[in-house]
């Protein structure tokens, strides 16, 4: 190892269905200034290929690496090993709460995404249209494709800062106590979609969803989602704003408006 490498101790929650769970200790050498996700990568690469965890972008854009580090929900790809080791030795790594665990640090996000879909938020392209392309005529054998930015770009990009990491769902005590709750991210999505849509019918449908069973009234104002969201989406603020919009609509209806 180079002089720049440091030893890191981690205790990782290991779980397989039917096998129960245990905390397993690992010690790995990682480069100085590295992140907790890199330490998990090092465990996987050098010590235990069976360790299950999820990651993709490595730069806080995909939300895949959300987990509990020393009891706090964070993105492992941007959490410094040195910072985590200072808090607790060994660094304790556990899966998110309030989502079923598939194995080790991997949680089942199907229910979470089903809730997000309810918000009509454009998370992924609704269809999978081919991006318009033009074929580079020069090296025909290579058949290079050049992406031409489409004019209707907003059809292809996401317009919401939420990275669907699930941290807000894990920290929310209402979510822990109530399976029927749509949850902070989905309600923030509803709020965002209402801001963006010009369609009055969709807007009314979304407000009814927020006002319905599982909607904003199941939130008990803990504000943990806003405190923990790595993207500053402010789900709690958006939930309170939706409540205001619902009350305004009810008030209007009372007066026949």
């Amino acid at each position: 190892m180079t002089a720049e490498s440091v030893a890191v101790d981690l205790e990782v929650l290991r779980y397989r269905p039917g096998e129960g769970s245990r905390l397993e200790n690992f010690s790995v050498q990682v480069a100085k200034g590295t992140k907790v996700l890199d330490a998990l990568d090092a465990i996987w690469a050098t010590l235990d290929h069976s360790l299950m965890f999820r990651r993709a972008c490595h730069h806080s854009s995909c939300g895949a690496c959300a987990m509990r580090i020393n009891g706090r929900e964070r993105l492992a790809c941007v959490t410094q090993v040195a910072e985590a080791a200072e808090e607790h030795q060994p660094i304790r790594v556990e899966p998110l709460h309030n989502l079923p665990v598939v194995g080790d640090l991997v949680v089942d996000v199907a229910g979470f995404f089903a809730r997000m879909t309810a918000s009509d938020l454009v998370i992924t392209r609704s269809a999978e249209p081919e991006l318009p392309v033009s074929v580079d005529p020069l090296p025909a054998s290579l058949s290079l494709r050049q992406v031409v930015v489409p004019e209707d770009l907003d059809r292809f990009i996401r317009f919401e800062s939420c990275i669907e990491c699930g941290i807000c769902v894990s920290v929310c005590p209402s979510m822990a106590a109530d399976d029927g709750f749509l949850g902070p991210a989905a309600l923030a999505g509803i709020h965002r979609t209402r801001e963006a849509t010009g369609d009055a019918t969709e807007s009314a449908h979304l407000l009814a969803l927020a006002d319905g069973d599982g909607g904003v009234w199941r939130c008990h104002s803990s504000f943990e989602c806003t405190a923990s969201c790595p993207q500053a989406v402010d789900p709690a603020g958006r939930i309170m704003s939706l409540r205001g919009q619902i009350l305004a609509r009810r008030w209007g209806r009372m007066w026949g408006r």
């Binding site: 009891g71 706090r72 309030n98 920290v171 005590p173 209402s174 106590a177 104002s221 504000f223 943990e224």
Partner: peptide, 15 residues
């Protein structure tokens, strides 16, 4: 779950 207050803020304690 809702009684696990490790790393939580005032809101979770209040809840």
């Amino acid at each position: 779950r809702w009684l696990d207050l490790r790393g939580r803020h005032e809101g979770a304690w209040a809840y």
